[in-house]
């Protein structure tokens, strides 16, 4: 009678073999360069089932990967760290990092594309800040591309060992740090312009961003416009200011829409800076998932003796 439960157990093992996505399994094994041309076999406790043969070529040392279902209370020793590193959580952390880097790139492009079309409420953006904005857009785009490549490496089609190897290289860390600095410098410049705008706004209106986005009175808008003209022309006299306004060089007062659009743009720049910081902070975080293996994997090397 003991043969019946044993047969059921055997059937379960065969079902497990059928459930294995072989393409995915081979891809995961192939990610380890030394195992790329290895034979893969499944051992159900009684017999060996060959899943992939050795390639038809001469090799010095033939490797065989043996996969065996884990028995109850069976201990598995000597886990392969390289395989464990290809955990799904690495994929998700790279995905989050890509989202942040590309989000920062989007916002820095908004700053580059939008700032030239808006009134500089900050009192006029200087050439230095414009160049920093270009630099930030370049650096964040490079980081976006780098994160996207790392994300590809974490998929079944790439090589996740590559990410681990890159993280261990000093030159790679230096390069990404430089990109971070440029990106963050652009963010700081944008944040600086936002602070300058906040000072201009509070000086002339005494109101917060939120209140400015809602509505300003005619008088407040006139005061803000005058403050901005003064900021752009330091030391300008009241008479000269009025002459500029009468000549049509500057408006008498900016409309609510114009002011709120500029404030929004500045807020987006500040958000871009926040994204850059978050992107920098999230990279390099080491995660160590503790997954319980359900399969035992052994690697056997064949060699000939004479």
């Amino acid at each position: 009678m003991a043969a019946i439960p044993q047969a059921i157990h055997q059937n379960q093992k065969i079902n497990l073999l059928e459930q294995i996505d072989r393409k995915k399994l081979f891809a995961r094994i192939n990610k380890i360069p030394k195992l790329q041309s290895s034979r893969i076999v499944f051992y159900d406790g009684n017999k060996l089932i060959e899943l992939r043969p050795h390639p038809p070529m001469c090799m010095a040392n033939k490797l065989t990967v043996v996969i065996k279902p884990k028995e109850k209370q069976e201990k598995i020793v000597g886990q392969n760290l390289e395989v464990n590193r290809q955990d799904n959580s690495s994929f998700y952390s790279e995905l989050a990092s890509t989202g942040l880097s590309c989000g920062a790139a989007v916002l820095s492009w908004i700053a580059v594309g939008g700032s030239s079309a808006a009134i500089p409420v900050s009192g006029g953006t200087s050439a230095a800040i414009t160049i920093l904005a270009w630099g930030a857009a370049t650096a964040s785009s490079a980081q976006c591309a780098n994160s996207a490549y790392r994300l590809y490496n974490e998929t079944d089609y790439g090589n996740s060992e590559m990410n681990a190897w890159l993280d261990s290289q000093a030159w790679y860390n230096s390069t990404t740090t430089v990109l971070d600095i440029v990106s963050v410098a652009g963010g700081v410049a944008a944040a600086g312009a936002t602070v300058k705008m906040a000072l201009n706004l509070s000086k002339s209106t005494g109101k917060s961003f939120k209140e400015v986005l809602k509505q300003l009175t005619r008088h407040e808008r006139k005061r803000l416009t005058e403050e901005l003209i003064r900021a752009q022309n330091p030391g300008i006299s009241n008479k000269a200011l009025k002459m500029f306004v009468n000549a049509g060089k500057y408006p008498k007062r900016y409309s609510n829409l114009e002011i709120s659009s500029s404030v929004r743009l500045q807020l987006k720049d500040a958000m871009g800076a926040a994204f850059s910081f978050a992107g920098s902070a999230s990279s390099g975080i080491i995660r160590s998932p503790n997954r319980i293996p359900e399969m035992g994997i052994a690697i056997i090397e064949e060699f000939e003796t004479w």
Binding site: C102, A105, V106, W109, I110, G113, G114, A117, A118, I119, S141, C144, G248, K249, Y250, P251, Y254, L257, E258, S261, S262, R264, L265
Partner: peptide
């Protein structure tokens, strides 16, 4: 400096093309 224009559809397609 008499008007501000932020053109969201144009800016959005410009950024989308880049990304």
């Amino acid at each position: 400096r008499q008007q501000v224009v932020i053109f969201p559809p144009g800016i959005a397609s410009f950024i989308a093309v880049n990304i």
